[in-house]
Nucleic acid binder design. Structure first.
Lengths: 132, 132
DNA sequence: GTAAATTTGTTATGTTATAACGTCAAGGAA
DNA sequence: TTCCTTGACGTTATAACATAACAAATTTAC
């Protein structure tokens, strides 16, 4: 994996916005934040996101059409990640322990399919918001 | 749950299209198929889909922005469903056994969240397509 | 039967994502 | 060096997905 400083400029800009926010953002929200920079068009954002995702630096949340910076070093090694999303505060937890990959492995076996990619997203209300 | 014949007309039309196709369809694909009927605008399709989903007759596949008629009677009783999608032939299998709901329950506990809804989608190549 | 509430249809618009094409920079062959 | 190819990037335009706002029709409560 490339070191951070070696990333092309647009990738650095997009990743920095996502890391600063810490929550899911749509491509167009990212674009808004980059107003005034060299990133001016949607496609520049989408192309940067695609590369960051393939590098494991960013995840796509299918159920939100949004993107989030990876904040779990273990997900890179395990390869399968579940996302737990609070619908109130938008906090996202990444879970990528053995139980997750085992579940997907068994699901693929049961359905007689060769897995290519998976999307596991659980929406709910987190403990902090529940008590607020 | 309402019997089929009692469904409002638009719901019947939309459901019939989905059942005939048997594969995921976008709202606009459904709209195309209904050309000439009383369903003329996207919102009519989306409203029908929303109701059919709340009745458990239709599922939404988040990773495809698409919809599919439910073809697993057990998913209604269990409540949590995993979808296994072949990227080649578009066949979708619904899996809603105990292992799926147990996985989601444990995930929610681990993340200290009160679950509201979940989306589990596994993409791959099915056995039939693998051998073709 | 009539008013209030809900559902439905229509138009317009908002949001998400990609196609098509032109330009430029890097690297290799003669 | 000069030319050529290749791939990355920027820009414009457009495609694909989804909902807001309001008007018309229907249902419900009394």
């Amino acid at each position: 994996m490339k070191r951070r400083a070696e990333l092309p400029n647009n990738l650095q800009l997009v990743l920095a916005v996502l890391e600063k926010k810490g929550h899911p953002m749509s491509a167009y929200m990212i674009l808004d934040q980059l107003h005034g920079s060299s990133v001016r068009a949607p496609l520049q954002v989408y192309r940067a996101l695609e590369k960051l995702i393939s590098m494991g630096q960013v995840h796509r949340l299918e159920s939100l059409n949004s993107f989030i910076a990876c904040n779990d070093t273990s997900c890179a090694t395990v390869g399968v990640t579940a996302f737990v999303i609070c619908e109130k505060c938008e906090q996202v937890q990444e879970v990528s322990d053995n139980s997750v990959s085992l579940f997907i492995t068994e699901l693929a076996e049961k359905a007689k399919i060769t897995a290519v990619k998976s999307s596991i997203e659980l929406h709910g209300i987190c403990g902090a918001c529940e008590n607020a």
